[in-house]
Amino acid sequence: MITLNINGFEVEIKEGSTIYQAASSIGVKIPTLCHDERLKPHGSCRICVVEVEGARSLVASCSTPASNGMVVHTESESVITARREILDLMLANHPLDCLTCEKAGRCTLQDLCYQYDIEESSFDGKKKKYEKDTSNEFYYADQTKCILCGKCVYVCSQVQNTDAICFVDRGFETHVGTPFDLGLAKSTCVSCGNCVAACPVGALMPKRKEKFRYWEIDKVKTTCSYCGVGCQMELLVKDNKVVEVEPVKGHSNDGMLCVKGRFSYDFINHSSRLKKPMVRKNGVLEEVSWDEAYDVIANKITEVKESDGADAITGFSSARALTEENYLMTKLMRAVIGTNNIDHCARL
């Protein structure tokens, strides 16, 4: 354990921790655009610079190890000047289209410009302009909005381990692209959207089917209903409709989702969902009331039990349904109908 001083507070922390981690541990929030605990520290955005007494220059808190006796200031005048200057530089190369930008309301650049009172850039030079890559079915990449924090590239190479995207060109012309700039559809991208979830600005966004603002939605944390990994996710809901799904850091998924969990949620609100019970009458399925459907089933159960015994009735429960529902179906079969003929598709 080492002890350092941050903004006048003593902090004790494990050796090898960064200044950023030390600050977080006592609730001191240092702004960042590129930090992600899952990644090797890369120190790209430089917004998290802090002042360390005795150091030659400002240091990036996300990648500088805390050391014993260090005295750190996270919001000193020189720190704020540098942060403002860096935001000024970012904004100088970023469209000011927050009014129509789909990221508005949860854009870190927007939040930091607000925090540090940067209304517009003081530079009026060249701005980047790239064509949107809309070739992926589920998300688009708008490099014009990219601030090159690098998170998407590193999430793809270090967390998802797919290496579909990379940095292309250098200097001011640097942008995130695919090998040979062939576009996302022709890359090795598996559409997991984990880069999209990492993007702090509007450069990587899910393709929306309806318009909504992030401040209009409710978020509900739940568990993915596809495979058995049990990824944690949030359903974003507007007007009783799931409009987007986002990964949440859970035990098993480390903040990741796959294409199915992330983008294949249309079934929930699909027009072909069953809305009423149906009973086959004269060979055709007809909509009926719940009462009638229950009657038909209950009568059939009684009938079969009487004629052939309870073991002539079989139930298939569902590996898709809730634990509680599975329990109740086994109880229905065993306690109410009286048979152990209950199974599910574990083998398929």
Partner: peptide, 23 residues
């Protein structure tokens, strides 16, 4: 089927799932 019953999806109910690591 002879009888078809409309069920709610995972997004429409509270409960639990148990994942492959028994969680």
């Amino acid at each position: 089927a002879d009888v078809v019953l409309p069920a709610a999806s995972f997004a429409e109910k509270d409960g639990t799932f148990v994942n492959t690591e028994r969680r």
